[in-house]
Simulated scan of single mutants.
Amino acid sequence: MKNTVMTALLLASTSVVLAQTAAPATTTTPAQPPVITADAAKKLVKISFVAGHGTHNNGLNYNGDAKGEKTLTVPLGWTVEVSLSNAGRMPHDMAIVAGTALPADPFKARLAFPNAATAVVAPSGATAAPTTFVVNRPGSYFVLCRVGKHAQNGMYVKLNVVNGAKAVTYK
């Protein structure tokens, strides 16, 4: 009986030690929604995107979102102010272009709205000056990176400008 109790205690303590020394599970950086502030009275929305946030899509993402996984919806006629910072390891920018398919050469694609692009931002924490534009045409657009083949490799989210929308959403 005494040996059985000792054996049980020894096995239990070994299990605890093994549980405490097991390797931690690997995790990926979760998506971080863009910071969005909307003022319906002023018809103004401010959006902060972080390019290269985490490892999703090999760092070709905005706030961890890529390949059109998320859609920003903005009411028609609102003013949009976009800030872009770069947490990644390569340069990025942000531009809004129209179309149902990604452009073959995003730098040659016409902007959907005047001023709807940022400068290219250097890697590792740099920030572009905010850009401001009015979404004056309803429709579906791409928010994409024009650097290299970033957009073609999935660095884009979608933008819908909706006549009659009451609020800004990102989902």
Rank of each mutant, 00 (worst) to 15 (best):
T132W: 03
F113E: 09
P123K: 08
A129C: 06
F113K: 03
A109D: 04
G125T: 12
P114K: 13
A122Y: 01
A119I: 06
F113L: 12
S124P: 02
R110H: 09
P123R: 08
S124N: 15
L111Q: 09
A119T: 12
T118M: 06
A119L: 07
N115E: 10
S124Q: 15
A109I: 01
A126V: 08
T132L: 13
R137Y: 01
A129Q: 13
G125Y: 00
N115G: 05
R137P: 00
A122C: 03
R110P: 03
A129H: 07
P130G: 06
A122I: 00
R137L: 09
A122L: 10
A119Y: 02
P138H: 07
A116H: 01
F133H: 08
A117K: 13
T127M: 14
A109T: 05
T118V: 09
V121S: 06
F133R: 09
A126P: 09
A128N: 04
P138F: 11
L111M: 09
G125F: 00
A116T: 04
T131H: 01
T131A: 04
T127W: 03
T127A: 15
G125L: 06
T118S: 13
S124K: 15
N115T: 06
R137F: 01
V121N: 05
N115R: 12
P123M: 10
P130K: 08
A112S: 04
K108C: 03
P130D: 06
V135D: 04
S124I: 12
A119C: 03
F133E: 10
P138T: 14
R110L: 13
P123D: 09
A129S: 14
L111V: 08
K108S: 14
A126Q: 14
T127D: 11
N136F: 08
L111R: 06
F113N: 11
A126I: 07
G125D: 07
V134D: 07
A126T: 11
S124H: 15
R137C: 01
V135G: 09
T127C: 09
V121K: 05
P138E: 11
G125K: 11
N115Y: 05
R110N: 12
A117N: 07
N136L: 10
P138V: 08
A122H: 02
A129I: 03
A122G: 11
P114D: 14
N115L: 06
P114V: 10
N136P: 10
N136T: 12
N136E: 13
L111H: 05
G125R: 04
V120H: 00
A128V: 01
T118Q: 06
A128G: 07
F113W: 02
A116E: 05
T132A: 15
V121R: 01
T132K: 15
R137G: 03
P138L: 09
P123L: 08
R137E: 10
A109K: 02
A128M: 04
V121W: 01
A122M: 08
V135Y: 01
K108G: 14
P114N: 13
V120R: 05
N115P: 02
A129T: 14
R137A: 15
A112H: 00
V134I: 14
K108M: 13
A119Q: 14
T132F: 04
L111F: 04
A112N: 05
P138R: 02
A126G: 09
F133A: 11
F113C: 08
P130R: 02
P138D: 12
V121P: 05
A126Y: 06
